[in-house]
Write a protein that binds this DNA or RNA. Sequence first.
DNA 1: ACCTGAACACCGTTCAAGT
DNA 2: ACCTGAACACCGTTCAAGT
Lengths: 183, 183
Amino acid sequence: MRADAQKNHDKIVATAIEVFTEKGMDAPLDEIATRADVGPGTLYRHFPTREDLIDAVIKSWVLQIETAADDAVASDAPVREVLLRWFSAYVARISRNKGGPAKFTSAMGNSHSPIFSKCEVLRLANERVLDRFRHDGVIRADVDSLEVCRIIGGVAVVADQAGLDEAATVSMLGVVIDGLLRT
Amino acid sequence: MRADAQKNHDKIVATAIEVFTEKGMDAPLDEIATRADVGPGTLYRHFPTREDLIDAVIKSWVLQIETAADDAVASDAPVREVLLRWFSAYVARISRNKGGPAKFTSAMGNSHSPIFSKCEVLRLANERVLDRFRHDGVIRADVDSLEVCRIIGGVAVVADQAGLDEAATVSMLGVVIDGLLRT
DNA sequence: ACCTGAACACCGTTCAAGT
DNA sequence: ACCTGAACACCGTTCAAGT
């Protein structure tokens, strides 16, 4: 890649992170191009779809989910408490930008999506946590990680779109966790 | 209301039902105006926001949810089965048009929304069903109907936006139901 | 009192002309 | 090989002019 192209690429991504933080992941691409001092055509050359741009933006922070998953796997606190902390971290991660939950969750399991590989990072981290408890036999075995990502993602989408607070989210997660626990 | 205004109002609503059915609730208002043979200004005069139009459109079918709630309250089948049927009916109703689940669920509990009264119809029907089982003590008492509407709505939003089939939706509802049942 | 439709604003997308 | 920005398309919204 030519030096000027690389520079533009990086500047667009850096600006997109800013704009997405301020206005959410459905912010006008127009504004990103303007603030990055590039023509709209340049943005399109680098990122043919909004999802391609999102993919580049989240690259810098999706992997941080692994830390929370590590904590969940290592913790010796009660299951319910560990899962609540883990799912809260999951929701916080995908809700970092407004509009994020819907983007992540609707792409989840769809291999044609530009952000599929990022969704897989989230799903596999979740798989790792679930596996630990599946092994212990404390959670049901008939629900796979994709489905759990979708249910938790659904909670995140609703919280995001309705502007709910942390307490409301935690309460909903509690219900889902009880549904996952063996009785 | 003048006769011609009434006629236009009705024609716009009838056309909106058609267009929403074909293209979902985020369909261009432009197309509705054109197909209804009215100017865009006429549509705006009758319905200042998209939600006002949606409110008029769903008026003809939200109340049908009562039938499913009646069945759920009267049924003597096992709780799990009754709730699964009821939640499935709930999801089917709000998913009648693409984009519907997000519209209903994000307006749920927001008294400033133009479709608030319609959301209340859904929530109160849900309340009625939940009350029956709360009375029997088979479901937890610490989760209110609004919260249940949001969780089930979250499942519906994900299913709608990811294009999931009936089986995937039913499976997710099963997890939520287990979370609501007392152990 | 209500309707029309031209006009504007906004934003995504393309592409001919440049470097 | 890459960038620019004018140009187009699309759609929401307003409002002056009409009936």
